[in-house]
Amino acid sequence: MLCASIVLFKYSNSSSTAFFTSIEDSKSIQDDLNGDGKKDILYVKKDDKNYYIQVNLHDGTSYALDPGSNFPTLGDSLDYWPMKVSTLDVSRNNIKEIFLQSSFHGKPIQHIFLWNEKKYDDIFCSNNNILGFVDSKNNKTPRVISANIYNGEISYNSYIFVKDKLKQFNYNYPANYMGMDIISNFISLVQSFPNESLTLPPYFYHNISGSDLNLLYGTANNSMSYSFEDGSFKDLSWDSNGVPHEVKWSLNFKSTSLSDSKAVKAITFDLLLTKFTNSDGTFTYKITSLNLR
């Protein structure tokens, strides 16, 4: 187990569609997990301390997701830091892997579970706070990115599935990889709130919807402070060279009232980043859509 040139189109509000399911209460998620074309159930139980997950396949068999010995927990049960769950066939073996993000003792944790013909194995765990999927919907080899953003510093680990095992590989990441530089700046921006005189940073698209911006200004003007918890991303479309053109990001924060430190809740910004080509041939990403939930 591993531990550790402007394209013109209509900008849609695809930032509002989450690809991770947030678990505020016990929940059943229906999905075809084993590739037989029938709906299975991923049941997540939440009590006052912990999370428990069970896979109920359509044929009547059930399997618990048991965390490995290195991270012997699926996460603390906290209203202001709920577990996030996603299922995706990154291995391309027609059986979906199960990806989890949660927290343990105030730190982010990640788990990846893989079916091994008899049970689900916890093949990856990490304290990183970013989990991303690259090339999962095109003809390239899908990659899983486990990254960490802290105080403006970004570190990355990249993985691919090889014969149903997760293998790390080295990659020289540019500063604007998947718009990570923009995301780091956006996290710092939100953590600087409240700010009643907010000036819109230049990494926002100039024609972004006014209703989207109202969500941002409303957050800035609240008497609340915000602390980044974790986030995720996934590329949605690509240019003719295979470079991601649109990247969907979800960023989760703990919101705390400045007048009552016990008044806390979870908020999530869903962002759509779009690639624009600069006059010198380089490119940058800009935030073209924003949703708050």
Score class of each variant (00 low, 15 high):
149 I>T: 04
136 S>Y: 05
129 N>P: 11
141 T>K: 14
132 G>N: 07
131 L>I: 10
130 I>Q: 06
139 N>S: 13
124 F>T: 03
144 V>M: 07
124 F>G: 05
142 P>A: 12
150 Y>Q: 13
141 T>Q: 15
141 T>H: 07
131 L>H: 02
143 R>C: 08
129 N>D: 13
130 I>T: 09
145 I>P: 02
140 K>C: 01
144 V>W: 04
132 G>C: 03
144 V>K: 02
126 S>E: 13
147 A>P: 06
128 N>Y: 10
147 A>L: 04
129 N>M: 06
130 I>L: 15
145 I>K: 00
136 S>T: 10
145 I>F: 08
147 A>Y: 03
125 C>T: 14
145 I>V: 15
146 S>I: 01
136 S>V: 10
154 I>D: 02
137 K>L: 14
132 G>T: 06
146 S>F: 08
124 F>W: 06
151 N>M: 11
123 I>P: 13
146 S>E: 08
128 N>M: 07
148 N>D: 14
126 S>R: 10
132 G>S: 07
137 K>Q: 15
134 V>E: 09
147 A>K: 01
123 I>R: 07
123 I>Q: 06
153 E>W: 03
138 N>T: 05
146 S>L: 01
127 N>K: 14
149 I>L: 12
139 N>P: 01
134 V>Q: 02
139 N>G: 04
153 E>L: 11
144 V>S: 00
137 K>V: 04
152 G>F: 05
152 G>K: 04
145 I>Y: 08
153 E>T: 09
129 N>C: 06
151 N>E: 13
135 D>L: 00
127 N>C: 08
125 C>S: 15
128 N>V: 06
124 F>E: 05
133 F>V: 00
127 N>F: 12
125 C>D: 14
134 V>A: 00
148 N>A: 09
153 E>C: 01
138 N>E: 04
130 I>Y: 10
146 S>W: 05
138 N>S: 09
142 P>R: 05
153 E>M: 11
140 K>N: 14
144 V>A: 05
140 K>W: 12
151 N>C: 04
129 N>S: 14
137 K>N: 12
143 R>M: 13
138 N>Y: 07
150 Y>D: 11
152 G>T: 09
139 N>F: 11
141 T>E: 09
124 F>A: 06
126 S>D: 13
145 I>D: 08
132 G>F: 03
134 V>Y: 08
127 N>L: 13
142 P>N: 09
133 F>S: 00
142 P>C: 03
133 F>K: 00
139 N>M: 10
140 K>E: 09
125 C>Y: 15
138 N>Q: 03
150 Y>P: 00
129 N>R: 10
127 N>D: 15
141 T>F: 04
134 V>N: 03
144 V>Y: 02
135 D>R: 06
147 A>M: 06
149 I>E: 02
126 S>W: 08
131 L>A: 02
123 I>E: 09
150 Y>G: 00
152 G>N: 03
150 Y>E: 11
133 F>T: 02
123 I>K: 06
137 K>G: 03
145 I>S: 08
133 F>I: 00
149 I>P: 01
131 L>K: 06
153 E>D: 14
